[in-house]
Design a protein around this nucleic acid. Structure first.
Lengths: 219, 219
DNA sequence: ACTTTTTTTTAGATTTGTCTAAATTTTAAT
DNA sequence: ATTAAAATTTAGACAAATCTAAAAAAAAGT
């Protein structure tokens, strides 16, 4: 079956919100999509009749397994295109989201299959987020954010959850990118900032706000 | 300014029809877009208020210079994506039109600039049609179709105006592709068929119907 | 437990792009 | 020059997706 751009955007946003809370509220979805709660209610009735969500009036909603599969397919398309934009066309990673947002709705399965192969079957997108496979299987990367890492531990940056130009600017300044290895020296109790050391560079201190957006794994 | 997918499709179709006749009729455009004449009239009023077409009731219409520039930009996007699909993703040329039809509406100028550079600034798409440049300049390739070529002349295939799988099948069978060199041996008066010789293959006869879709230039 | 606030839904309107059927204009035919 | 046929436009309706304003339900506060 084929879904409209609008339907796909709703499905994808519900998916993303469900990463944080099991069931999603009308307001939060309206906020995510920059639309009005009334519009959300309208669309949710539609998604319910199409049997993609579980929805009870006033009770919130969540994707059922069909909806989830569709969401993962959209996420797959989005992340493959992001990979393409960064690794083939040379975009900076803070510029690709909006373009991938449009490309993800191009509805050819063959296209995505070939794109995947052309890109050599990447496992993660440029922000370090895993790319679901054709069957909607997605790697769960056990990761912690930098604020949770004990002092003296070596870690590898696996993803960054804020993709703004401002964030990118900071990360570049600190010489941090996906798969960069760094060592946590010390946590400061006063403001939660963290001193780290990145390879051959001098140690530096990053604010809690920045640290909270950097996800890492051990080894 | 930004145009809807629908508006872009109308603009592009008017452009294509104008290649054959200076002014375009409501019916022919409806036919091209698989829509109804009434819908065409509606959209044309809109394009007129947006000052993209010259339009007089019952008199047909044509793109003005603004409309023409926009059309050429859409054609540029379409053909660059077709080139990408064939030369990078390995699609056969008869499969790319519908996908490029969707990709062409993705509205990032930077994307197209980078795609162009990634593809190494191709001059023609996989069917041999010229790709307009950023300013809407398009090479006019002086070409004749095979039925018009005098016997004993050597020519190079520059484009093929029918992109169906059936046509591709025939061309493959005859070992004809874009930039193939061939020699016209003889025209048969009875049915307009043409005997040709392609490089080291044995001469063969192609029907007038096929010959009329193969465009060539000398040398 | 009752009231206030917040959240969600309904009702009705709007925009974009489309359609059918009827009316109008142009073109072709006798 | 009339009439018949074809092409085009208008009028009015419809579907998708959105909105505002009002009503209803749930949650929070006293």
């Amino acid at each position: 079956m084929n879904y409209s751009v609008s339907e796909e955007n709703y499905i994808k946003s519900i998916y993303h919100l469900q990463q944080q809370t099991e069931t999603v509220t009308t307001n939060s979805l309206a906020n995510e999509l920059h639309t009005k709660p009334a519009s959300v209610t309208d669309m949710l009735k539609k998604l319910q009749t199409k049997k993609l969500v579980e929805y009870e009036k006033y009770r919130g909603f969540k994707l059922n397994s069909t909806g989830n599969k569709i969401a993962l397919n959209i996420v797959r398309r989005h992340r493959l295109w992001e990979f393409f934009l960064v690794n083939k066309l040379g975009f900076e990673w803070d510029k690709v989201h909006d373009i991938a947002e449009e490309l993800e709705h191009v509805s050819s399965a063959d296209l995505i299959k070939r794109l995947d192969s052309f890109l050599n079957f990447p496992q993660t997108d440029p922000h370090g987020d895993p790319i679901p496979d054709t069957n909607g299987k997605i790697a769960i990367i056990k990761q912690q954010c930098l604020t949770e890492i004990a002092a003296k531990k070596n870690v590898v940056v696996s993803s960054v959850s804020n993709q703004s130009p401002e964030m990118l600017e900071m990360l570049k300044h600190y010489h941090i990118a996906i798969s960069t290895t760094l060592k946590v020296n010390k946590h400061f109790a006063f403001d939660g900032s963290v001193e780290i050391k990145v390879s051959q560079h001098a140690s530096c201190i990053i604010s809690q706000q920045v640290a909270a957006n950097i996800f890492v794994h051990h080894d």
